[in-house]
């Protein structure tokens, strides 16, 4: 009887121990998932501010170009339309997590990018405009803004990848708590695919 009691007691202790290990592992895994989820949200914020920056820059840019190249009506209209289309989206982490909305949003942003690049091409034809100090500054700002958007999109994708890996792989998927994989930004402009690999 005593032997049986000891064995039973040992077994109970053993299972308690196992339960403890599993629960504490689960808690830490769950916390990790929450942390990664928050990191994605933070990165989404950075993407937003980069996009917002471009959005705010446009009226100034258009006004400056207009002063020198008033009859390029089609180009200005295209920019205004693309900007209005982008303005209809309220960018939130939830919106970015919705694959279909993200796709539409990206299409609108892509449209705006190409309208803006057409605007910059137009400006090449006006030497006075190209020499204008205000325009040069706006041009530098636009360049910098496009670069920021790219950097923040990359960062967002990296954060999403880490999150998706964590909730998709074996132990993590148990503790995901209903979280689903998030979509990433895709390359939208055709020439972006030919961009050289990043290495240093």
């Amino acid at each position: 009887m005593r032997m049986v009691g000891m064995v039973l007691g040992g077994l109970v202790l053993f299972f308690l121990f196992i339960t403890f290990v599993v629960v504490s592992y689960g808690i830490s895994k769950h916390n990790e998932i929450v942390r990664l989820d928050n990191a994605v949200a933070k990165r989404a914020g950075y993407v937003n501010s980069a996009l917002q920056r471009r959005y705010d820059l446009i009226p100034n840019l258009v006004a400056t170009v207009k002063a020198y190249a008033a009859h390029e009506r089609g180009t200005f209209e295209a920019v205004a339309k693309a900007r209005a289309a982008v303005g209809q989206f309220t960018v939130t982490p939830q919106m970015l997590a919705n694959p279909e909305m993200l796709k539409k949003f990206q299409a609108a942003q892509g449209e705006l990018s190409s309208a803006l690049s057409r605007l910059m091409v137009v400006s090449e034809r006006y030497p006075d405009l190209k020499a204008n100090q205000n325009f040069l500054e706006l041009q530098a700002q636009l360049e910098g803004t496009e670069n920021r958007i790219k950097v923040e999109r990359d960062n967002y994708n990296t954060a999403v990848e880490a999150f998706n890996n964590c909730i998709g792989q074996f132990p993590g998927n148990i503790f995901a708590g209903g979280r689903t994989e998030k979509p990433m930004f895709q390359l939208t402009t055709p020439d972006a695919q030919n961009a050289p690999q990043v290495k240093f």
């Binding site: 670069n147 950097v151 961009a195 990043v198």
Partner: peptide, 16 residues
């Protein structure tokens, strides 16, 4: 830079 974009290279190096 072996054909890499200078902005990409600079950003990655600076962050690294």
């Amino acid at each position: 830079l072996d054909g890499q974009d200078i902005a990409d290279f600079a950003n990655h190096l600076a962050r690294k």
